[in-house]
Design a protein around this nucleic acid. Structure first.
Lengths: 140, 140
DNA sequence: ATAGACTTTAGAGTAGACTCTAAGGTCAAC
DNA sequence: GTTGACCTTAGAGTCTACTCTAAAGTCTAT
């Protein structure tokens, strides 16, 4: 199949497929006489593999490692794959915690403000952003 | 005070303060004879205000809006500030949901794998990334 | 034979928010 | 009078992952 078909079947754009090739994630072995990239089902599997990794939050660098494990499994051990996953889990957990902290702070901001058509002269959102002591007051 | 002191007191770097100035978030009114930027306490308050906004996840564009409300409160209404906050809350909530979905998927990946020194020939992480049907199996 | 859809390439552009560099000027202390 | 810490500028570089462009070649259908 040509790149357009691979794009459609994998869910990646043709641009992105060429980009991944440039990054060394995908190798194209076949070219048509007119120099078009020709892909087979194994290439489709690889493209889908990469897409699944990306959808799970892995960076291209991490995908590269997964691909190298995948391409020569006996040369690797389960720990190789599991460690990357464990690190990613920690990263995602940390990010969620951070966002939850932010969310709490945002709700605190929002709840204190009427949000109406009143002049913002006394707006407690601006007050809170302006002054740390606003928070202390809330906690006191 | 000069930029170094403002940096220390605000928690922003001197580079960042100059960058914010270039972006129009901060205006510097005073310059010393030797052309050094001279800041006062109001400038410090503004710098801290911006930092607090950033820490709460607001983009520089959003900070700009908050600053304009702050600089002329009677010209604005509470809804101006509250709407931005509400949108940000939704964004953060969406991002958290997305990350939680990813986290579930990552745990599923991780739990299926022994993670030991065994050869990755049968590694279920790579299997799962390679094949949608792996997931169907789990769900069946 | 020609329109329209597809493909090719190298390389530039995008987003957001910094972060750094080079080459120079200033200032306080010893 | 010199060291070292600070300041100035315009502009380039960083990061990640695309995304797009231009100019050209190819394929399919009518």
């Amino acid at each position: 199949m040509k790149i357009g078909e691979l794009a459609k079947k994998s869910g990646l754009s043709a641009h992105t497929l060429r980009f991944y090739e440039k990054q060394g994630l995908i190798k194209v072995n076949n070219r048509s006489e007119s120099n078009y990239r020709i892909y087979n089902n194994a290439d489709l599997d690889t493209a889908k593999f990469i897409k699944r990794c990306r959808d799970m939050g892995f960076s291209l660098e991490e995908v590269e490692v997964f691909l190298s494990i995948r391409s020569d499994r006996p040369a690797h051990i389960c720990a190789d794959a599991k460690n990357i996953t464990a690190i990613k889990i920690t990263e995602v957990e940390d990010k969620i915690s951070e966002l939850q902290q932010i969310l709490i702070a945002l709700h605190k901001l929002s709840d204190a403000c009427c949000g109406g058509n009143e002049s913002a002269e006394l707006c407690s959102i601006i007050d809170a952003l302006d002054n740390d002591k606003e928070q202390d007051k809330t906690e006191a």
